[in-house]
Design a protein around this nucleic acid. Structure first.
Lengths: 339, 339
DNA sequence: ATGAAAGCGCTAACAC
DNA sequence: GTGTTAGCGCTTTCAT
């Protein structure tokens, strides 16, 4: 790599000190009362030499990197990729750049990523926290590093977060199914302590009870994060077999629905006649499922853009009060949940 | 943000100079012949104080940021999100971190992104270049900044690149369609000068000619990047209407296929009986299309991981010869292209 | 109106 | 074995 031009090169070329160059190029000529002509000359030379300021040096000096660290479960998952895109755009508007990493829902990877990004002096974090990462989050908090959690959060820890109302959304789902004549609603969810997952189950159970339907553990299929391919067929078959098979399935996430429907497609069930289906989130995939899917629409754009705004607020004023934002989701009713 | 602990704090606490601390924490005690006990003491204190090296300072000093700049068209597009994920993993293996940006196929945005990332002293770039960004690429080259293009490249510019063989893949597609009895193959592609797009059309045309079928411009639908929603229905209808309607459609990209199939689904055509379909790339979406899609599988993992490896090679040795890698794709034959 | 110089955190050549 | 110091590129205080 060729030698880059620095402020010093410009100063020499202009026959002035580096101080003047710095003032001019940062548009502080007024405060510093730099001579009109000198200013013009400096700008000229800077342009000629194609001067590009070294952001690293600036950051080192100022203690501010204008960088946001983004940690999601998996950047290749459309759910997070969409969030990432919005965060990127929103960050750019504020002159921030985004460094990202994927945790794979793994607390150790998450810790490593946080360390790396802290070392890189990110000004703050946006994190979709993994299970068992409470200590990492607490640690960031105690070090006073600005932080916003998204999608999930930890009720016991005081942090900024932006998430959707998973409980209410799930209540809506079950209400809708029951009102459409489904009495035996199965839930396919993850075996996880993440609050978003737990809230979805809580909403499901609460709504059933409200309808006088007792919650039956055998109607809840818990899939292990790393074992989707293996668990899905087995657990769904279990829901559909036995003496009291489910008449509808509520998929707690996008990925579960995708895999679940692929499996159901191999079976002899017609949706919604034989089996009602509702799921969380959308997906291009679902546009081609023969029976358009009733689903929970989470306003990801809003989640992501608010997360950035809250974070930048915190960065600019560490004292600013913690924001805990819960955004409503919307139940989009299509054919798959019909009677 | 609380004051972070620096090498100086450790030095003071240990009653030694910063030099020793630096040596020890970088495992250079041998070369520097640091005392055994002092070394242990330094490490102890570092751990106690939870010392985290300031990567910015290191980079400023060393001129190496261990950061890769990644510019894709849109990180929320699964095609690029997948590439990004592989790049992230491969980079991490080599102790690199990734900063990304989305160009939206827009040369101006691309230029801005490059500037920002250059200022941040990325050690090198991986770029899926937009149309009309030749000058930007040349500029990076002339400044000696390591660079690998992916997915597309510019034949006139000598750069590293990793792409797939779009020409051959398209030839395979058309051969396959014609051999399955499709004589009037339509092409739905972008109105673009990007080499990957052009090569796909060239392959399509060449293969038709080889079969003695003359290329008819009216059978090629060119969609404008920003106008997919609008162009797709109109242009596809045009292909299907008239006195010489197509009997099959070759979609040149994922996104085009997704939108195209949605439209076709609203029409009265049965795939493959009434209309053969082949497309580039996969998608969860296609798993639910009633007629499983014959498609071109591009080995994205290979493209992305090779890109990282080539880039790191270049970073480590700017003199190392330019690598131009073309990887073969594979035609996956399913039902949608049947007779 | 301009320049000298300290210092952000770190490394490494050099001196002792 | 260990410490001193210059310097990476930049900002900013303080002299002049």
């Amino acid at each position: 790599m060729k030698k880059r031009v620095s402020i010093k090169d410009i100063a020499e070329a202009a026959g002035v000190s580096t101080a003047l160059v710095s003032y001019v190029l940062n548009n502080k000529e007024k405060e510093a009362r730099v001579g009109k002509e000198i200013a013009i000359k400096i700008r000229d030379i800077a342009k000629q030499l194609n001067y590009q300021p070294n952001q690293l040096a600036k950051s080192l000096k100022s203690g501010k990197s204008y960088t946001i660290g983004l940690i999601v479960a998996d950047i290749s998952n459309p759910f997070f990729a969409n969030i990432a895109r919005t965060i990127e755009d929103e960050a750019k508007k504020n002159n921030y750049t985004v460094i990202f990493g994927s945790s794979d829902e793994n607390a150790e990877k998450s810790k490593d990523l946080i360390d790396v990004l802290v070392n890189r002096q990110v000004d703050g974090f946006i994190i979709a926290p993994t299970e068992n990462s409470q200590e990492q989050i607490k640690d960031l908090e105690s070090r006073g590093i600005p932080l916003v959690l998204i999608d999930r959060y930890f009720p016991g820890i005081s942090t900024n977060y932006v998430a959707t109302d998973n409980f209410e959304a799930s209540v809506d789902v079950v209400n809708h199914l029951v009102e459409n004549g489904h009495k035996r609603v199965g839930l396919v969810t993850y075996d996880s302590d993440l609050i978003n997952i737990k809230e979805r189950q809580r909403g499901y159970e609460e709504a059933l009870r409200k309808h006088g339907i007792s919650v039956n553990p055998s109607m809840i299929a818990k899939i292990r994060f790393g074992n989707i391919e293996e668990d899905i067929p087995a657990r769904i078959n279990a829901l559909l077999e036995g003496d009291k098979p489910v008449d509808s399935i509520f998929f707690a996430t996008n990925t579960l629905a995708l895999n679940g429907l692929k499996h159901i497609n191999t079976l002899d069930y017609k949706v919604p006649q034989d089996l009602g289906i509702v799921c969380f989130d959308e997906g291009d995939a679902f546009d081609f499922f023969y029976s358009p899917l009733t689903h929970v629409y989470q306003p990801l754009f809003e989640v992501a853009s608010k997360a950035v705004n809250v974070l930048i607020e915190q960065i600019n004023d560490t004292q600013s009060p913690k924001k805990e934002l819960i955004i409503a989701s919307e139940l989009i009713i299509r054919k798959s949940s019909g009677a």
